Each structure stands twice: as structure tokens, then as C-alpha cells.
Simulated assay, not measured.
Amino acid sequence: MTTLPTYRYTPGPLHATLLAGSVPLFLGALLSDIAYGQTYQIQWANFASWLIAGALVFSGFALLFALVNLLRARPKAGRPTVYFLLLLAAWVVGLVNAFQHAKDAYAMMPTGLVLSAIVTLLAVAATWTGLTNLRSGDAQ
């Protein structure tokens, strides 16, 4: 019986920190948008803009790490590809969300709130996929 080697491309400590760090920033932006929608205090919109900018930096670097992991994966399909595509989608929607938040305070509503919810869900899905045993090369 021949055993095939298992090639694991789990995120390293820096990659995992960047990946997991984007979730609370996107979530904070969503909560700030909700607070702005209820109070109309402009500072909540400013908080959301800064949190989105920080999340884009974190997820952008995590996206670079994910691209390297994808290029190193033996078969170019499966979970490394799904992980990269989820993270790319989260980053692109986050960038669109940042542009939406750059508008005047109330002009960003309700589109900014909806985009914040979507990007938060995408970031959680990407983080879940990225931190749960990305494997390439085995049948499990």
C-alpha cells in the first residue's frame, strides 16, 4: 500500500493574523453603520470608513498570502481556490464599500449598510475557509 503525501497549505501565523484581523474590522464597520442609521451622528460614518480602510489593508495582505498559497498548491482547484475567490470577493466588495462610504454622510445610506453586511459575511466565510485545514493533494 502506497501512501500519498498530504500537502497542507494552512496559513502561517502572520497570514492567519491578517486574515482573522479583517473580520472584526468589517464587523465594526457594520455595527458603526447600524449605529449611524439609528442616530444620524456623522462620527459613526467616519468610524465605519476608517474601519473599512483598516480591514482592506489586512485583507489585502491576506489576499497576497492566499495567492502565493494558491500558486503553490498542486492541483489548482478545490479549497485553496475557493478560499482565494472568497477573499478576493470580500476585498472587492470592501473596496466598493469604501467608495460608498466616501460619499456625504447620509448619501451612503442604505447602500453602505447593505455592502457592509455583505462584506462581513464574505470575510467570515473566507476566514472560516482559510483557517479550516486547507488541503491540497489528498482525497479527504
Rank of each mutant, 00 (worst) to 15 (best):
V114I: 12
L63E: 11
D33Y: 03
A102M: 13
K76I: 08
G78K: 01
G94P: 06
Y40F: 13
A35H: 04
Q100Y: 09
L131H: 04
R74N: 11
L95Y: 13
K76C: 00
G37Y: 12
R79N: 06
L64S: 12
A102R: 15
L71N: 09
A126N: 04
G112N: 04
T120C: 05
N133D: 14
A66N: 10
V92H: 05
F61Y: 10
I42T: 10
A102L: 14
F47Q: 03
L63C: 13
T129D: 03
V96N: 10
S116V: 14
S116M: 11
T39P: 09
G60E: 09
V68I: 14
T129N: 13
D33N: 10
V93Q: 10
M108G: 08
P75S: 11
P110E: 05
P75I: 08
F58W: 02
V57P: 00
S59V: 05
V114S: 03
I118V: 15
L64V: 15
T127C: 03
G130E: 05
Y40Q: 12
D104S: 13
A126Q: 02
L67W: 06
N46M: 08
L31G: 03
Y83T: 07
T111C: 02
L63V: 03
S49T: 15
H101N: 13
V124Q: 05
W44M: 07
T127H: 01
T39Y: 02
L67R: 03
A73R: 00
L56D: 07
L113S: 00
T129W: 01
A89C: 00
A102P: 11
Q38Y: 15
I52L: 08
R74V: 07
A105R: 09
L121N: 08
L63R: 10
G54H: 07
A98D: 08
G60N: 03
D104T: 15
F65H: 10
A117D: 05
N46V: 12
V57M: 06
V119G: 02
F61Q: 06
S49K: 15
G112Y: 02
I34K: 05
L31H: 05
W44Q: 01
A62G: 08
L86W: 04
K76S: 09
A62Y: 04
A35E: 01
Y106R: 14
A102Q: 15
A48T: 09
R79K: 09
K76V: 06
T111I: 13
P80D: 07
L122I: 07
W128T: 12
G37E: 09
I118N: 05
A105Y: 10
G130I: 02
I42C: 00
A62E: 04
T127A: 03
F61N: 02
V82L: 15
V114K: 03
W50S: 11
V96P: 02
R74E: 08
A107T: 04
A53M: 06
V57Q: 03
A89V: 06
V57C: 01
L121F: 15
L95E: 13
I42E: 01
K103P: 10
G78V: 01
A55S: 11
V68N: 13
V68E: 12
L56R: 04
T129E: 12
Y40H: 15
A102D: 15
G60D: 06
Q100I: 13
D104C: 07
V93C: 09
A90R: 02
A77H: 14
S32H: 00
L70T: 08
A55T: 05
T120K: 00
S59A: 05
A48S: 14
T129C: 12
Y36F: 11
G54R: 02
L113P: 00
T111G: 05
A90S: 08
P110R: 06
